[in-house]
Design a protein around this nucleic acid. Sequence first.
DNA 1: AGTGAATGTTAATCTAGTTTAACATCATTT
DNA 2: AAATGATGTTAAACTAGATTAACATTCACT
Lengths: 194, 194
Amino acid sequence: MNFAPLLKYIANYVSLTATEIAFLESKLTIRTYLKGQYIVQQGDICKNVGFVLSGCTKTFYVDKEGQEHILMFSVEDWWTSDMGSFITQTPAYFNVQCLENTELVMFSYEANEELYEAIPKLERFFRLIIQKAFVSSQERIVRNFSLSAKEQYLHFRDQYPLIEQRIPQYMIASYLGITKEFLSKIKSQLILEQ
Amino acid sequence: MNFAPLLKYIANYVSLTATEIAFLESKLTIRTYLKGQYIVQQGDICKNVGFVLSGCTKTFYVDKEGQEHILMFSVEDWWTSDMGSFITQTPAYFNVQCLENTELVMFSYEANEELYEAIPKLERFFRLIIQKAFVSSQERIVRNFSLSAKEQYLHFRDQYPLIEQRIPQYMIASYLGITKEFLSKIKSQLILEQ
DNA sequence: AGTGAATGTTAATCTAGTTTAACATCATTT
DNA sequence: AAATGATGTTAAACTAGATTAACATTCACT
């Protein structure tokens, strides 16, 4: 059970005693999924929030035309879940699927509640990371309506250079909200421009 | 000092004792702004999160072309601030301006920190409301790339029928990420369709 | 009541990004 | 090495929404 990356991550926000760490670990589980497996499917109740130890997932939504829209990718040291489903324990709107073999630390709904009761510092920890997630979600909304597709792609490439290498281009197009054909055009334009 | 709407709102999430309420109130201030006044300007450090008692604000971003993009409206029982600036105490990205005379309960950064220390239930409260804000921000991203402008307008009208009455149409267009001319076209189409 | 500013409408022209469809490349399995 | 499926490219035709510009309406103030 390798909780080290999670503990290091938490230590950026709050500091836990040895006893608290032991209690925390006792409430968590580690689970591995194979490439292609679903962690959550649209309509499920999302029972866990996962912290990625290794691998990569995509969170996406299939619209009424059957089109897939990718909301986020999660790699090492990121979180993955359908937060809406998790917090209200109602059917999920999103799918979460593994793009690689993926190892996760699982925080179940019940474990989270117990952890908040027992260790208020963890409530602070989650408040802090959700605040950050909220802010970056808002920033993305702004980018959506103030940047062109090309500018958004450049921003993505800039901000997540490592993710771009690991993920097929048509999924990046879906994340950016454009077609794979248009992303291909943008990339060939960028090559000409250099 | 009329904190009643705030206390009622908080009671939906956590229950406070009379002593806790007294302490909370001692850390808060109420401030009124006139229509047109700025609560936060791009570049300021956002010192407060405001809870709207009455009135209405818009949170917007001015892009490099000078175009204004409205991220949210806040009316009674909603929150208003530049959350990114507030949590990191760095210069704001957004402007917050009053669309009506507006009365706010102000939570300063320092007050918030003291409140979290003194009353862990308030840390829970903020965690819960930020979780909700994060989820609705994600839902908006999905709508942005899976709905047409017309569908997005109908969704807005459905979800915020009262807000639509109070706000000029060109600001609603800005919120939806379309031009006022196109929103006008959509509305005349909808009238024909009936 | 009349004037100017703010808000809203209409229509023509334009463009960023979509759709469709055919083809190219790459990786995996047999 | 051939075959299959997954991924990526190119180009032509199309469309949702932007831009521009002229005009209409409503509001707020003297």
